[in-house]
């Protein structure tokens, strides 16, 4: 019993992180049909931000890093994605792929290929034990931040005029413009939100891994893609369900796989996702499509 609870706790920690990765990607896709490969590089920028400001106190460093990521997200949209706005989803995707590669190599040029270690408070590396169940500091951090961010996002989407505009734009972008919603404002706002998500995820990943490096955005972005794809591209709740299942699946494979195969855990998880897609090609929660 304790063992099962232990696994559930671990799964909840992973699922929270994955949700923080998948939601911004799903959000941006919903608004402008862009699957943003470079979302991973926003996380990377956040991590380097933490590295640069780590000398100051951590809360301030975290805040400054967050600001930098949001600015980077806005700049990315303005410089690379606005010129190709309205192109096919494939073109948008390949553009973001180029941006991702560009930023990765720029980071390599600036910071080198060796990871930059970032000091984080020992608080997060401690483990709490309740009734035989070990809860890592990072798990608590992930779950806490995910609850705050996702809860905040839901309230923002439901209660504010901007959130309402975003929901309208996600359903029918042209009609949203026809009632006067400014396309640039909605898209910039969405990118800013995705930047916040990336910044928060960067914080968790740095606490977890202890360092920042140029290619660190890759794994998170793959996870975000797989989760959103499994949930159904463009579906907000689908992304959450996908993230939860992916977290649970990862823990399950970790437990069930023999030791020598454990290092290929991701391969098994993604393979399982492909099998899920074999049964449900549109994902678990097919998105509501815009009427023409």
């Amino acid at each position: 019993m304790t063992e099962i609870i232990q696994h559930l706790v671990d799964a909840a920690g992973l699922a929270s992180l994955y949700a923080l990765l998948a939601l911004p990607v799903a959000l941006v896709y919903g608004i402008m049909n862009l699957v943003n490969f470079a979302h991973g590089e926003l996380i990377m920028i956040g991590a380097y931000g933490l590295f640069i400001f780590a000398a100051i106190t951590l809360p301030l460093a975290a805040f400054l890093a967050l600001v930098i990521v949001v600015l980077a997200a806005l700049a990315m949209e303005r410089a690379a994605f606005r010129p190709v706005r309205g192109s096919s989803p494939e073109t948008l995707l390949v553009t973001s792929f180029a941006v991702s590669f560009l930023l990765q190599n720029a980071a390599l040029m600036i910071f080198g290929s060796r990871p930059k270690s970032v000091e984080t408070p020992s608080l997060f590396s401690q483990t709490v034990t309740i009734g035989g169940v070990h809860i890592e500091g990072v798990t608590i951090l992930s779950v806490g931040l995910a609850v705050i961010c996702i809860g905040g996002l839901v309230i923002f989407m439901k209660r504010t005029a901007f959130g309402m505009a975003m929901r309208a734009a996600a359903e029918d972008f042209t009609m949203a413009r026809l009632v006067g919603i400014r396309a640039n404002a909605v898209i910039s706002g969405t990118f800013a939100i995705s930047g916040v998500g990336a910044g928060v995820a960067a914080f968790i990943l740095v606490v977890q891994g202890g360092s920042a490096f140029a290619t660190m955005g890759l794994t998170p972005v793959i996870i975000a893609f797989v989760a959103t794809m499994m949930g159904g591209l463009g579906s907000f709740s689908g992304a959450l369900i996908g993230a939860a299942l992916l977290g649970a699946g990862t823990v399950a494979f970790d437990v069930l796989l023999p030791t020598q195969l454990r290092s290929s855990r991701e391969a098994f998880v993604y393979g399982a996702v492909l099998v899920v897609l074999l049964i449900r090609p549109q994902g678990l929660v097919p998105a509501r499509r815009e009427r023409v």
Binding site: M164, R167, E171, A176, L178, V179, R182, R288, R291
Partner: peptide, 29 residues
């Protein structure tokens, strides 16, 4: 969005109301 600000509103073919928004939200938007 600029044309709307000039005092022109369109009721489009096929209505295109926002189905995922509530009726009241459709009015407010």
């Amino acid at each position: 969005e600029a044309i709307v600000r000039r005092g022109v509103a369109l009721v489009p073919e096929g209505r295109r109301i926002f189905t995922t928004l509530s009726v009241e939200e459709n009015l407010r938007i």
